[in-house]
């Protein structure tokens, strides 16, 4: 990969135009919250609460998990409706390896495509060649090698996978800690040790060298997967996340039942209170006084599902490699 980098670990202004614009948009989202939304009303609530972006999808991970079946890209009509309803950037998910879904999302004018393990994978060996697109991609990762493989394929943003749809933050923590630890370990290696490190991480040597020099990924590193409360968001930010994705944590009531934000004012208010609190907590992640204050304002929390109770074969995070 021909891209060079600068001292703070980002791709340098001498990198390709396309990649710089993609990473540029990811930079604009830092310190913010990206919220999963399933309809126009939820998208409006998210924007109103201060979300920096919304992820348009038909079912949030908690529902996909509970209902089963094949999870695919959302209907373009739904995505279009959400694009028209809000002024903030709109993201949408494509299945792993499903480049035709990604082509459709790009055509719709989606601002960021999430090649996501939450949907049912379409290809068991190949991820999408993301360099082939003008629209930036975000991809999930559980460790540094996985993150660097996605970046090699053209991802402009990495997020931890965590275990989506659970409301249990334990795996997001595990993945963030692992990525940060593995990056730190690279910084103390000598030049000649980096070749073996690249082999161990199963990642391109060039990218391993960039991380070793900068101590960070060359693209923004966000967190997702089980973040359900303001405290969860603050925890992930303190562990090194640069922004937060919240999936099922805002609009879900029971495991597979969303809050009725369209017809029930009380449930709408509940969703608003959660959304606002997580937004404030992500900016003021280092201020326990503000965190206590906003946590107290939340009414109700997604019931959730302990990740430890999920069997390995039911896990979403093991999709992709």
């Amino acid at each position: 990969m021909a891209d060079t980098h600068n001292g703070n670990g980002s791709f340098a202004p001498t990198s390709g135009t396309s990649l710089r614009l993609k990473v540029g948009l990811a930079e604009m989202l830092k310190g913010g919250v990206i919220m999963d939304v399933m309809n126009v009303e939820q998208a409006r609530i998210a924007e109103e609460a201060g979300a920096v972006s919304v992820m348009a999808l038909e079912r949030v991970p908690a529902m996909i998990r509970a209902e089963g079946g094949v999870a695919r890209m959302a209907n373009p009509k739904l995505i279009k409706g959400i694009i028209d309803a809000v002024s903030i950037p709109v993201m949408a998910k494509a299945r792993i390896g499903h480049f035709a879904e990604a082509q459709i999302l790009q055509e719709l004018g989606v601002d960021f495509i999430d090649e996501s393990e939450v949907l049912t994978p379409a290809d068991e060996a190949h991820h999408i060649d993301k360099h082939a697109f003008k629209t930036p991609f975000v991809c999930g990762a559980r460790n540094l090698g996985e993150a660097l493989r996605r970046i090699a394929e053209g991802a402009a943003m990495i997020r931890t996978k965590g275990e989506a749809g659970t409301g249990d933050v334990v795996h997001a923590v595990q993945h963030m800690r692992q990525i940060v630890r593995e990056m730190k370990a690279l910084t103390v290696l000598s030049e000649q040790e980096l070749y073996a490190a690249a082999k161990e991480h199963q990642a391109p040597y060039e990218l391993v060298r960039i991380v070793a020099q900068a101590g960070r990924l060359p693209v923004p590193n966000f967190s997702a997967g089980g973040i359900a409360t303001p405290a969860d968001a603050a925890l992930m930010m303190q562990l090194g996340a640069e922004a937060i994705f919240v999936g099922s944590g805002i609009f879900m009531k029971e495991r597979a039942t969303p809050l009725d934000v369209e017809k029930n004012p009380k449930e709408r208010e509940e969703a608003v209170s959660r959304a606002k609190a997580i937004v404030v907590a992500t900016t003021h992640y280092n201020d326990p006084r503000i965190l206590a204050e906003v946590s107290a304002q939340v009414t109700g929390t997604m019931k959730g599902l302990a990740a430890a109770a999920i069997e390995e074969k039911e896990m979403l995070q093991t999709r992709g490699w």
């Binding site: 202004p13 135009t17 710089r20 614009l21 540029g24 948009l25 604009m28 694009i83 002024s87 950037p89 790009q106 004018g109 601002d111 960021f112 003008k134 629209t135 930036p136």
Partner: peptide, 29 residues
């Protein structure tokens, strides 16, 4: 968002009133 969505983001190099030749300008949404 006058120039469109992310897909319309672009980098231009153009003359400015600043001393020192054309300036690179990165436009994102």
């Amino acid at each position: 968002n006058a120039y469109g969505r992310q897909i319309d983001s672009s980098i231009h190099t153009a003359a400015t009133e600043l001393p020192g030749g054309p300036l690179e300008m990165v436009y994102i949404r």
